[in-house]
Design a protein around this nucleic acid. Structure first.
Lengths: 136, 136
DNA sequence: ACTTGACCTTCAAGCCACTTGAAGCTTTAC
DNA sequence: GTAAAGCTTCAAGTGGCTTGAAGGTCAAGT
């Protein structure tokens, strides 16, 4: 195993910040890195694959708890498929819900902005704020 | 000014948790409540209006910093309209961005789930995880 | 009068996923 | 020899609260 990557390069390759990788290690998502004599973290190509996998799961916005579980299974040689599938469907559900919520918000903010454009400000009689109070 | 509301009732009326109201007071979004002899917070109808306004701004997901600024202007008798308008347009922008991001995610997760359905799990040869690694 | 239970108080810590900053060590290039 | 870039750890900050512990208060029922 070549140990030729330091944390900065690993981070670049995986599309993460070095601080994020240190954090993942600290909270047990990633296993402790091997260290050089001077204390620098060193990573192999295999480590890079794992970190890329984690990065990908995070870019799918899997919660770190799920990522930890999946990585743990993977490192124990067990199939993480079931965990991945359930995290995926939970995630898809939450994404749908959040999209609906944001679309409601978008409509509401859009309406408010339209109203605000037509509205002369004459505080405290007439103001966007009054419109906001009316809503809901 | 009648001072007949305690924090629980105020919270109910405004659609917030008592802990949220205490928090808003602690971080200076709401002014310090008046206190009964025994130390209970007491609120007037005017206070209720303010708290409802805050609740509404939060339901529009205005950041608490913006809410604090708007409430401060309002309490100084100044027009918060400009602050409200700019917070609104910042918010609308962020909502749009986030919706786009979540839709991308939704597509990606949907594709992955579809692939996963067609895929026999035969770890470690074939697995959803391999598919996830391939992506990106 | 006493108790029960619902409500209130404060303070500290937890949540999520990191980032930022301070103080200091190592490595690399010139 | 020295300067810049990169590494180390640890603590604290971000946002918007919630939760828990330990205790005080108030109304109703017995």
């Amino acid at each position: 195993m070549t140990q030729d990557l330091r944390i900065g390069e690993l981070a670049d390759q995986a599309g993460l910040a070095p601080s994020a990788i240190r954090y993942y290690e600290a909270v047990g998502v990633l296993p402790p890195a091997t260290r050089s004599r001077s204390g620098y973290r060193g990573y192999s190509e295999g480590d890079l694959d794992l970190v890329k996998f984690v990065s990908r799961l995070r870019s799918l916005e899997f919660p770190l708890n799920d990522v930890r579980e999946i990585v743990a299974l993977r490192r124990e040689g067990k199939a993480p498929c079931a965990a991945v599938r359930s995290a995926m469907s939970r995630g898809a559900q939450q994404v749908s819900n959040r999209i609906r919520e944001l679309q409601r918000l978008q409509t509401e903010l859009g309406d408010l902005e339209k109203t605000a454009r037509d509205l002369p400000d004459d505080w405290p009689t007439v103001c966007v704020c009054n419109v906001i109070e009316d809503g809901q």
